[in-house]
Simulated scan of single mutants.
Amino acid sequence: MLEEAKKPVFYHNDLLGTFELVKGLDLFETTIQWSNQECLLYFNLEEDEKVNDSLRTARQLMKEQTTWDASIKSFAANQLLELAKDWQEQDDSSETQEELTLDQFMSRISLESLHAYPDGEFEVYCHDGDLFWGHVIIVSDNINGTFQDAHIAG
């Protein structure tokens, strides 16, 4: 029984590829290409109907990833620019810095992982480009474009 529990569990989707179950988290994970770089795509282990709905969310994001990438970065920058400026002021490592702009903020962050949920909900985890000394930026959204939150964690 123990040997059976140790075996990897996979879920295949023709459009998104093969996901492997991360058993301790009850998440399926795969690597995808997003804006010319690799990132992780997750969805929760749930009943089939919710899995299919989560995968619909993921497919929609992948299909329109250029638009979503720009929207996610823009929302994060607009929500967190002032906080990033505060962190920049606290940085003792450099003496004079030019003031951080929205475009600079957006160009420094990059998508690390995407978590797709049912009902069009998703969360994006972004590398902070050292704006927040290595903390992750989390953006919550819905496929209908209703951004809910952007904050730092870690």
Rank of each mutant, 00 (worst) to 15 (best):
T30F: 02
N44Q: 12
Y42L: 05
D103N: 05
I72T: 07
Q104D: 13
C39I: 09
L131G: 01
K73N: 03
D103R: 08
V139C: 07
Q79W: 05
E99M: 05
D141N: 15
Q79P: 06
G17V: 12
L83D: 03
K7L: 10
F75Y: 12
D128S: 12
S94T: 15
S35W: 10
N144V: 02
Q65L: 10
E64G: 06
I109P: 00
I32V: 12
S93Y: 04
G134Q: 13
W87F: 13
L114V: 03
E89Y: 12
S71H: 07
C126F: 05
L27R: 09
Y42T: 02
L27T: 06
L45P: 05
H127A: 12
E4N: 15
E49M: 13
D14M: 01
E121A: 13
T18Q: 11
T67P: 09
V22T: 02
G145T: 00
V136I: 14
Y125L: 10
V136L: 11
E123F: 07
A153L: 07
A77F: 00
T57K: 08
G24M: 09
Q148V: 05
I137W: 00
D53A: 14
N52V: 02
I32F: 06
L41H: 01
G120F: 06
S54I: 05
T18F: 02
A70F: 14
S74H: 08
N44L: 02
L15K: 11
D103S: 10
Y125R: 10
A5C: 12
D92L: 14
Y125N: 11
F122A: 05
A150R: 03
A116V: 04
L131P: 02
D130M: 14
G129W: 00
T101P: 01
F105L: 02
F105E: 03
S71Q: 11
E38I: 11
Q148D: 11
E4Q: 15
E3K: 13
I138D: 06
